[in-house]
Design a protein around this nucleic acid. Structure first.
Lengths: 133, 133
DNA sequence: GCTGGCGTTGACGCCGACGTCAAGGTCTAC
DNA sequence: GTAGACCTTGACGTCGGCGTCAACGCCAGC
């Protein structure tokens, strides 16, 4: 298949595929007219890349997975190098989540304090608050 | 004080302060020689911006807080507009955390599956596994 | 008056994963 | 033969929050 079909079947753009090739992630045979030619294996490699990017991987981090597929394995994560990346990303993810939860808690407290301060900027001076106020 | 001192006291750079000014976030009086002049209020505004950026706010999202300070309030989050941003960011944060936890779980499962497949790619063919293998 | 440390504006660089446009070649269908 | 749908390479644009450099002005101390 040619690049347009590959892009469509992988749910991405031709520009993206050429970009991956420029990074050395995927290869390409050329037809006599210079057009890039791809097969089903290429499709699987691109889908692997896309799935990992969706997981928040950087493009470089998908490289071991792609190479693992090219080496003939039926899964990109069948190789030690891929597992190493898995573990690294998992640790990063944990750290990121912890950080965000910390921020969320601080934010929540800020909001609570600011909210209450805004609800009662100063004592109400003896007037009972109106029910619908 | 001049821009160098403000930068040092706010823990940032002069370039950053000029950038904030170019975005209209902070103002500046000028001395007769054209130098920017700042006071303690400016310092507090810059510190407010920095604190919010550390929380993952975008620069634009700090604007209500800065304006709140400039309006004379003693806290950047004393105004309704700031609280609105708080709430929005809190919701974004929740969504982001949920998303990351989902990814983490998927990743964890992938790792578990791939790990076990790697540990036992095929039956051991009758040889008992070595204890330290 | 000269050095050095401050300040000024303006402009380009960076990162990552592409989008978008330009100017052309190729192939198919009519 | 020509329209138009595909392909090619190359290059610039995007987003945010600045870093970094250039080329210059101002001011204090020696």
């Amino acid at each position: 298949m040619r690049i347009g079909e590959l892009a469509a079947r992988a749910g991405t753009s031709t520009r993206t595929l050429r970009y991956y090739e420029s990074r050395g992630l995927i290869g390409s045979r050329r037809a006599v007219n210079g057009y890039r030619e791809y097969d089903e294996d290429d499709l699987r490699q691109v889908r692997e890349i896309r799935a990992l990017l969706d997981f928040g991987f950087g493009l470089e981090e998908t490289r071991p997975f792609v190479e693992c597929l090219r080496a003939g394995h039926d899964a990109g994560d069948a190789c030690p190098a891929s597992l190493e990346v898995y573990r690294r990303k998992l640790a990063e993810l944990d750290a990121c989540i912890d950080r965000l939860r910390d921020v969320r808690e601080r934010l929540r407290r800020q909001l609570a304090v600011a909210d209450s301060a805004h609800a009662a900027p100063e004592p109400r001076c003896g007037l009972a608050p109106h029910p619908g106020d």
